[in-house]
Design a protein around this nucleic acid. Structure first.
Lengths: 233, 233
DNA sequence: TGGAACAAAAAGTCAGACTTATATGTCACA
DNA sequence: TGTGACATATAAGTCTGACTTTTTGTTCCA
């Protein structure tokens, strides 16, 4: 996953980033560059670079004569893949997973509808291939193989939508699906109904039936919401 | 908007960021830190901080012995508010506006549905207030006043959804709406039908009718798509 | 009480020397 | 002629120390 050691400042971020997003330093906490540099045993220049990165993520704000202030959660760039990863690694993981799943439920159906209009024939082929891979691994506790094809399927949908904002959420969806398989629910084989839905979505996209692709994908995401007990009463 | 001069490295970013996102340096272009430092007349340390920020946005990649390489567009953190602002300011503005409007069309209806379930009574009040403000300024070329209430309306919806990922898109929606008012379409008074829809959404949220709030908001976003000629044939 | 001058604190900036990784070219050897 | 080991140059990476600038809080005088 990404590059875990791109220089000294990266190492600092690997511990400071998760610490901040985990809430170890409540909003308003003030850190001092020199003190941090000592604590991490790096030079001030390296520490300053790390602070700049945190600042660009709106996790902290650096002001003269004051120090490096931790910003409230509502200011954070929660779409930054790095921030998402840090939060998924911390104690806020369940909450993060929920909010991302809700985002999925909004985006993916629309993306599927667009994919039905814009997908190339190669993408249609990839899609059916992924769906078949899911079917093939849906029994016998082959969770890893199933996950692989599931992630690929949703990535293709998002990419084929032709919208860059959607396409960029591929990584997010991958994290959510992986999280579901590895930590939370899904102790046994995946729901056969969900597998069937994926196959049908692939068919709908191939048939250029946007309305149907959207509706079927909405059923998939509703299932994902229900797994996390996020549902309308 | 934001802070346009938070240190020397910020000044550098103000010109280098837009230049890169505008495509002035095609993907694969190699820049050298020292050369950039000379060009911008800053010290290497300042230049390095700027590069670190660009790197955290995945606009560039810095490698030893090679230099600072510009990454392809598909790698960029297109959800970073700063990147969005830079792209909206450049020649790619129309395309960016389109992709953001499509994103809106996916997110806002779902957000409205959630808002109908989770909005506090204060938020309901704010919502109707905004809707009334829109009505009051929908005639007589009071575009700025109308925009102000329009932006506020959508911000409340996104916040009231209770989902932080949705809430964080408030700024994006503000940019899109402002862009529409100031540059592209909307030379005359806003569409009366759209105004009515906003009032009805406010009513639906207040009445806790999630399904209706979602459907009405979908109508609003469909209108936004049509304005940009993004529509299903 | 209010305001202006002052002092201290912390980030910001710069310059220079040194280290490290690595792409690339060179040369010997098969 | 091709291949692998080795040398070299290059550009980023790191560290240090001195200096500047901004901002805050205090103090002192009107």
């Amino acid at each position: 996953m990404s590059t875990p050691g791109r220089g000294l400042h990266g190492r600092v971020l690997d511990t400071l980033g998760p610490a901040i997003t985990a809430g170890d330093y409540p909003a308003g906490s003030v850190l001092r560059t020199d003190e941090l540099a000592q604590r991490f045993e790096v030079s001030r220049s390296v520490m300053r670079e790390a602070v700049r990165v945190l600042e660009s993520m709106h996790l902290v704000e650096s002001r003269r004569r004051v120090g490096v202030t931790v910003l409230p959660e509502c200011e954070w760039n929660v779409y930054d893949p790095q921030v998402i990863r840090w939060r998924l690694a911390g104690s806020e993981r369940p909450r993060q997973l929920r909010s991302l799943t809700v985002l999925r439920s909004a985006v993916e159906p629309v993306a599927a509808g667009l994919a039905a209009r814009h997908a190339t024939s190669e993408q249609c082929a990839e899609l059916t291939e992924c769906a078949l891979g899911m079917v093939a691994n849906s029994r016998g506790h082959r969770l890893e193989e199933y996950l692989f094809h599931d992630v690929a399927f949703h990535r293709v949908i998002l990419t084929a939508s032709g919208n860059e904002m959607f396409a960029r959420l591929g990584g997010v969806v991958a994290e959510v699906l992986a999280g579901r398989t590895h930590h939370d629910v899904m102790f046994e084989d995946p729901d056969p109904a969900a597998v069937t839905l994926h196959v049908q979505v692939a068919e709908a996209v191939r048939a250029r039936d946007a309305e149907r692709a959207e509706r079927l994908t909405r059923e998939i995401t509703v299932g994902a919401l229900q797994e996390l007990d996020i549902l309308a009463p």
